[in-house]
Design a protein around this nucleic acid. Structure first.
Lengths: 343, 343
DNA sequence: AAATTGATTGACAACGGTTTCAAAATAACT
DNA sequence: AGTTATTTTGAAACCGTTGTCAATCAATTT
């Protein structure tokens, strides 16, 4: 292995001077710098990263713990994270957590990282684990569940979030504005009762505000798993088979919405002519589906960037204050919602 | 920061002994071991990874360079890679390369990695870069382009691959077996002439073998970009608009196939009743699309695992022989192909 | 009882850098 | 010419481990 010493010898200087050239700090005579650079090139010298890490007490790496990245929601967010991290000179390790196991906490804490970004879905991760990490290493999360935690706990975990209730409410209000009255909520199931389900609350709020009754069959709660992509399909198909009437489906994510569309089309109806569908997330799929999906765009890249910024804040300034940053969501209009008023 | 020294002091032993406990090697009296373990727990001691890396000259990390991981083809492969890497006790850094830039080579070579896995699509990466890396660090690739390189070059780059020609041929033969004769090839465009286009070659071979004429409008070549998800749609739509006749579309990946389906449905025809569509890849999308897509399943997870195995081979045994491993592809039947013979 | 073996420990030399400090050389001012 | 800044360098301490080696001590064999 070629070391700094070899370079120094070849260039006829001391190792210290070579360091100065590598790190571009301190004074180095032009002539000497060139000689050293030549030696570096000639020897194909690459500084030993482990030694640098040891000496500088920093790894220039952050770990990202994420649910299955096959889910394009998270992969897009990851892209945002990566882009921003690179701007800060950091690279990223990725840990996918799946349903079965998560010994990741130990691995990550013992790993060569300066900080951790946790993307959480559902209940895959435990609060205690997070709090444990927080004590040992800078951490920031994007974690659905955090919204449902109590204030003191929330205050301990830096996070970037979107207001799910608000999002769902906007989504449903858009449908209402377009003349829809019979709107099915196709959403996530939470272990707790539905009144702690922010998505449903948003739906409920929009409906109530506009004095629209919520019939029983409007309420569909689904357990989302990575491997169950057709749950939205199944649910809406059942509704249609039983002859229930509705003019729109407000899904709490695009996957469910896509399933709904498929069920509707298969039943012989048309989207959006007969039934409108709206989603949340705006994942790639939304552009591919027929018809293309109107949805609430969650700015995943942007969230990724903010996560990194907040983490860097902690790493660089040792600021202990756990920040909470809300990201706004906007409607992305496409083809899957019909305006019942104009026509 | 808590170091091994602190632990040693607390436990009343020498640092060396603490090391023995951590690494579980050498002799340590039971009683002493317990004392040390207690001290470790109490002090919340975590071994400094940089020091370990430096000392052992290994990072226990590998870098994965991949095209946009939003593409579920690659994210699935990544999942396979990650799973296998963990079994070997390694973790993964992920670098997404995009169209614009790739200064990744330098970054990765200077990074804390024991090896590199390169997932390549199209021409994003340059052969010279790869060869440069090969000289400095264990590397293994899954890279479409490698199949089109000349033998001596190929022999220098360890890789796992699928035979694109064979795959496409199987796909088309399946259509033919199902009674299709007028089959449109909807495939990738390569810079070179089509006779070095393995996908097209496979199509051509199947058609010729069965004495089926290839009409001009059967041949569609498309430049695939991440951001152009609708190119398959556009192409087939044009064909339909102009009134060309065909009973099936053999697409060279699922994205193109999905676009084709959408175009066909929009034109008022049905899939597979009027036109059959077959894809290649078997990405998640294939299950979601309506109708679900019959496609050639590329075992992405499996490829990922083999990539890691081959890399570990290099890392551990210093075996310099660049291996070439072919992975077999199988048909995954779903709903998008109609059997014209039975009906 | 002496000698051999095995278990158990600590001292110490790396590993390959960064960074502080002081010395030496050069340039800039009185 | 003498003094004071400013560049330019190398020596040396240190980062926190691993792993070799020899020393110690108890157990076993001759």
């Amino acid at each position: 292995m070629v070391t700094r010493k070899d370079v120094a010898q070849k260039a006829g200087v001391s190792p210290s001077t070579v360091s100065r050239v590598i790190n571009k700090n301190g004074y180095v005579a032009l002539e000497v710098r060139e000689r050293i650079e030549a030696a570096i090139a000639e020897l194909n010298y690459i500084p030993n990263r482990a030694a640098q890490n040891l000496r500088t007490r920093s790894y220039k790496q952050i770990a990202c713990i994420s649910p299955s990245i096959s889910n394009s929601f998270f992969s897009e967010m990851f892209m945002g994270i990566e882009g921003m991290a690179i701007e800060y000179g950091y690279s990223l390790s990725l840990y996918n957590i799946t349903k079965k196991k998560h010994p990741y906490i130990k691995q990550v804490l013992e790993g060569p990282y300066d900080g951790i970004i946790l993307l959480g879905s559902q209940e895959l991760t435990m609060v205690e684990d997070i709090l444990e990490i927080t004590k040992k290493m800078p951490l920031v999360t994007y974690w659905d569940r955090i919204e449902r935690m109590d204030i003191p706990l929330k205050a301990q975990i830096p996070h970037v979030y979107i207001d799910l209730k608000k999002v769902m409410r906007q989504s449903v209000e858009y449908l209402i504005t377009n003349g829809h009255k019979e709107i099915v909520f196709l959403g996530h199931y939470y272990n707790e009762e539905s009144n702690s389900n922010p998505r449903y609350k948003g739906y409920e709020m929009a409906m109530k505000e506009h004095r629209l009754p919520i019939k029983d069959y409007y309420k569909i709660f689904i357990e989302m798993y990575e491997d169950k992509l057709t749950t939205g399909y199944d649910a809406i198909k059942m509704l249609l088979d039983r002859g229930y009437y509705f003019t729109a489906v407000a899904a709490s994510n695009d996957l469910l919405a896509a399933g709904a569309i498929r069920a509707i089309i298969e039943s012989g109806k048309k989207v959006p002519q007969d039934v409108s569908v709206i989603g949340v997330d705006n994942i790639e799929l939304a552009k591919i589906v027929t018809p293309t999906l109107t949805t609430m765009n969650i700015p995943k890249k942007e969230i990724g960037r903010m996560l990194v910024q907040q983490l860097m804040d902690q790493i660089q300034n040792e600021s202990t204050m756990a920040k909470s940053i809300e990201v706004e969501v906007r409607l992305k209009e496409r083809e899957s919602v019909k305006n019942l008023i104009i026509s």
